[in-house]
Design a binder for these strands. Sequence first.
RNA 1: UGGGGAGUAGCCAAGCGGUAAGGCAUCGGGUUUUGAUCCCGUGUACCGCAGGUUCGAAUCCUGCCUCCCCAGCCA
Length: 562
Amino acid sequence: MSETESRDFIRQIIQDDLESGKHDQIVTRFPPEPNGYLHIGHVMSICLNFGVTNETAGRTYLRLDDTNPGKESKEYVDAIERDVRWLGFDWEDRLTHASDYFEKIYAAAVSLVEMGSAYVDSLSADEIREYRGTLTSAGRNSPHRDRSVEENLHLLARMRAGEFPDGELVLRAKIDMGSPNMNLRDPALYRIRHIAHQRTGDDWSIYPMYDFAHTLSDAFEGITHSLCTLEFEDHRPLYDWFLDQLKPAHRPRQIEFSRLNLAYAITSKRKLNALVEEGIVEGWNDPRMPTIAGMRRRGYPAAALREFVKRGGVTKKDKLIEMGVLENCVRDILGENAERRMAVLKPLKVVLTNYPEGKVEMMEAANHPGRPELGTREVPFSRELWIEQEDFMEDAPRKFFRLKPGGEVRLRFGYIIQCDEIIKNDAGEVIELRCSYDPDTRSGTGTSDRKVKGTIHWVSREHALAAKVRLYDRLFNVANPNSADDFHAALNADSLQSVDAKLEPSLAALESGTPVQFERLGYFCADSEENSADAHVFNRIVTLRDSWAKQEELAMKDQGQV
RNA sequence: UGGGGAGUAGCCAAGCGGUAAGGCAUCGGGUUUUGAUCCCGUGUACCGCAGGUUCGAAUCCUGCCUCCCCAGCCA
C-alpha cells in the first residue's frame, strides 16, 4: 500500500519542483486573518501547508493576515496560535504578520505609482462600484486614471500622512477596466482607515488590501507554493500581475484547492460569529462548534482531526463530507487509546435481595480490553446498584438480550443477576428492580462457566459519583447549513441535553480533557471549563457504534410503514 | 448571456490511451463478560450527456448539460 500510495495534485507539483531543481526547499504559509476562531475547514489548510513541508524538510510560516484593523484582535491571534500548536504543528521562529511588512508594501505601492501602474482615485466607493461595470459589461476608466506620476506620488504620501478622511481617496492598480475578470478592473491597493491597528497602533492611516499585501508577503517570505482555496482562483492573474510588475527576488506560485465542508456544520466565520454573538452557543469553544477550540473542548483528539483531513484528500472538487467520517476518526483514535470506565447516564435502581447488606467487594476491571499493559482498577460492588434504564425492558422483544422480568444478565466485571421483581411508582413507571445474584459467577474466578447473552454496566449506589453529563448532537438539522439563506431555520433545538449521571468513583480523579470510554455508551471527558472537584461536569465526545440501536431504528421504520 | 473552476458507487478518492485501486458508510458472517473493538466476506460505478478519433477511451477531440466562485475601499 505504502509504495503505491498516490500523491494529491499539490504534492505532485511539489515533488516535481524538487526533482527538477526548481526549488531546493519548499516554503509554505498558513495565513489566517485574526478575525475569528479557526474551524474544521482551516484544519485542512493547516495540515496541507505544514504537512507538505514536514514531508520534504521545508519550512512553513504562520502568518497573521492583519490588514483590516477593526475586525481583527489579539484574542483571535492568541487563539490561532494555540489551536495550530494543539493540532500538532510547529512554526518555530516563523510567526509573522502582514503588518510586519507594511513599510515594504508601501514602498512597493510607490514603485507601482512610479512606473505608472497605479494611481490615486478620488471616486467614492459608490462611484467606483458604478464604474466597475457588471459581470457581462465592461467597466469605464475613472476620470482620475491619468493623473501624473508626480500628483499620484504626492497624493499617496498625503494619504499616508493622514491628511484625508476615510474613503476620500483610494490607491488603485492600473490594469484593465474592460477585463472579463473583475479582479483586474483596477483593483484597490490601499484604502484610508483612521483606526488603530492591534500591532502598529496609530502608525498608519492607510492599510493595504488583501491581494496586494498577500502577494507581497508571500514574495518577501520566499514562499514557493502559496496554497489557497478555490475562491481565489480568479485572483491568481492579479497575484501574477503584481509579481510581473514588481519582479521580487522570489516568485511564489499560487495553487488552489477546494475547501472542506462538513455536513450538518457551518464553516463561515461570519455565521459562527453570529452563533456566538446571539448566544445560541456558549462561545467559540462551545463543544458543539466546529471550531478547533470547540472540538478540543469536546474531547476530539488532534490526531483524529489530522486523520479526518487525510481521509478527505486534496482536490479541486467541491466536497461535503459526512459527519460520520469525522466521528469514525474520533472513535478509531479513542478506541485505541482511551481507558475504559463505567458510568450510568440514566439510572435505574437495582437491589440484590440475596446480597449481604453492608458488604462491599472490590471488583477488578481491565482499563482496556485490548491492551493489558494499561492495567486494571478496582470498582466497588454492593447490594444496591444503578444500571441504565435502557438496559431493562418489561416487554422485551425476542432479540433483546439485556435485563427483562425473569431474565438473566451479566454485570460487567461482576456477577450474573436475575430480575425477580419490578417496582413501579403511581405513574406506572419502573423505579426499582429486585434481583438476585449468583455468588458462583464472580468475574474472573473461574468457578462457573455459565454463559448469558448480555452484559450490562453498573455503578454501586453507595459509592457513585454524581455528575452532570452533557450529551451533544449536531447543531443543524440540514446537511448543508452553509448554503441556507438563514441558518437559524436549520438549527437543531436539541443539540444539547444534560443528564444527572452516576459514575464509578475512580472518575473523580480524572483530569479535565482526558478522554475515557464509558463502557457501552461512548467516549467522554471532564469539561475543561466547568468541571470541578465538587461539581463534576462531563462532555460526551461521541457515542460508540451501536448496531442494536440501528436495528431498533429499522424495526420502528418497518412498523411505521406496515 | 462575461470570466474562472468542477463533474468516477451514498460520502470521499485513485486513475495520466490498454480494458475501473482504496477508505468511510451499507449489508452478511465469525470472535467477544462493551450489541464496542477485532476478523472475514459484500458494490452490474450507463466513469455528467451525446458524438468523434483509435485495434482499444474514464483517459484524446467536438458539442452540450449540471453545480460552485467572481461585480467589498473584506479576506
